[in-house]
């Protein structure tokens, strides 16, 4: 099948039920999107599908035909994504960093849908886990990105 990721169309040959995460990581060799739980519990695998945050570890690749997929590797090229990344760096959000690709993509999706979210909106829509508990920093960075 054909898959559009970060503006490039790829021909891939995998079982239709293969999770999008593993197509991105193993067929395309892009490792910024992370495996954390495989059950849509943690959000480390979050990517954008047609602008919305999707947990790629439980998304069968055959449901992605015709979809516009964006991964962390292309986030900086997106106007909202680049604001989010700048805010992440300004607030020194990451610690171990493993969940942060997913956090950044979830923030981008939130700000695309709601350019000026309240703190409640942020807490209500960003449900990615961070074991380092960088949550105070994430909220502050999303608020800064919204103002930028």
């Amino acid at each position: 099948m054909q898959l559009s990721i970060n503006g490039t169309t790829h021909d891939i040959d995998v079982e239709p039920e293969t999770p999008l995460l593993w197509v991105i990581r193993e067929e395309l060799g892009m490792t910024g999107t992370k495996y954390g739980c495989g059950l849509a519990q943690c959000g480390a695998c979050t990517v954008l599908v047609d602008g919305e945050a999707v947990r790629s570890c439980v998304t069968p690749v055959d449901s992605m035909a015709g979809a516009d997929i964006v991964t962390i590797e292309a986030a900086a090229a997106d106007p909202v994504g680049s604001k989010v990344i700048d805010a992440w760096i300004a607030h020194q959000v990451p610690q171990c960093g493993y969940c942060q690709s997913g956090q950044v993509m979830a923030a981008v999706a939130l700000l695309k849908a709601n350019p000026s979210p309240s703190e409640e909106d942020i807490l209500g829509s960003m449900a990615n886990l961070c074991r380092c508990a960088t949550y105070n920093g994430i909220v502050a960075a999303v608020q800064q990105a919204a103002k930028a």
Binding site: G32, A75, A76, I85, P94, G97, S101, V104
Partner: peptide
């Protein structure tokens, strides 16, 4: 390490 960890690198 923050820039690389904010961009998936």
């Amino acid at each position: 390490d923050v820039p690389d960890k904010s961009t998936g690198r």
